Simulated scan of single mutants.
Amino acid sequence: MLWNHQQKVNVGDIPVVWFTGRRLPMVHPAITILDESDVQENTPRQLILTKGDNCQFDDSFFYPVGQSYVHREEIIGLVRGHVPYIGRLSLLLNENPALYPAVATLIAVGLAG
């Protein structure tokens, strides 16, 4: 579940980052936040550094070439809740589209319950 009504990202928040041209988003906690001013627009701007929980190094290696931080406008939302293992189902369906009818039937039966 995502929330995107918060203007500022805080350390510990989990942003969902979707870089232009990438097929899938990246969902990792923010570990460093830098506030700087955008001189051209005279507005504050946040630069966010993320890092996966099971990784020794930050995520800057995964950012677009020449980019060391995530920009706030690249964040489509902040994680505010989750359903365990639902991501695995999504990956399974992406790899095996023929399973869509079976999964849809299981969901429908479960909801009708």
Rank of each mutant, 00 (worst) to 15 (best):
D13S: 01
T105N: 09
I86N: 09
G12K: 01
I33K: 01
V17S: 01
V79C: 10
G66R: 03
E36T: 14
V70W: 06
R45H: 09
D38F: 06
N94S: 14
R88P: 05
P25D: 00
V70D: 04
I75A: 01
N10M: 07
W18V: 11
R88F: 14
R45E: 15
T105Y: 06
L2Q: 04
Q56W: 12
G52H: 04
P25W: 01
R88V: 12
H71S: 10
N10Q: 10
I86E: 12
L34W: 10
G81N: 07
C55G: 02
Y85T: 12
G12Y: 02
G52L: 03
E36Y: 06
E36N: 06
L78K: 09
G21R: 03
Q56V: 13
F61I: 14
L91N: 12
W18S: 12
Q67P: 01
Q67R: 04
S68C: 11
R22L: 07
N42A: 14
T32D: 12
I33H: 03
V70T: 02
V16T: 11
T50W: 00
Q7W: 12
C55A: 15
V17R: 04
Q56R: 13
F57R: 11
L111A: 11
N54P: 00
L34C: 09
F57W: 12
P97T: 03
T43C: 07
V17H: 02
L92V: 13
P97Q: 00
G81L: 05
T105M: 07
E74C: 05
Y85W: 11
L89T: 08
F61T: 13
P15Q: 05
H71W: 07
N96A: 08
I76A: 04
S37W: 15
R72H: 08
E36A: 10
R23T: 12
E74M: 06
M26V: 11
Q46L: 02
P44Y: 02
I31C: 03
P101T: 04
L34D: 11
T32L: 14
N4I: 06
I107G: 00
V39T: 10
S90Q: 11
T50K: 02
N10K: 10
Y63F: 13
V109Q: 14
Q7M: 10
G113H: 08
P97Y: 01
P15D: 06
F61D: 15
Q46T: 03
P25Q: 00
R72Y: 07
C55H: 15
Q67F: 01
M1F: 13
A108L: 06
N4C: 08
L93F: 06
Q7V: 10
E36C: 08
R80V: 15
Y100T: 10
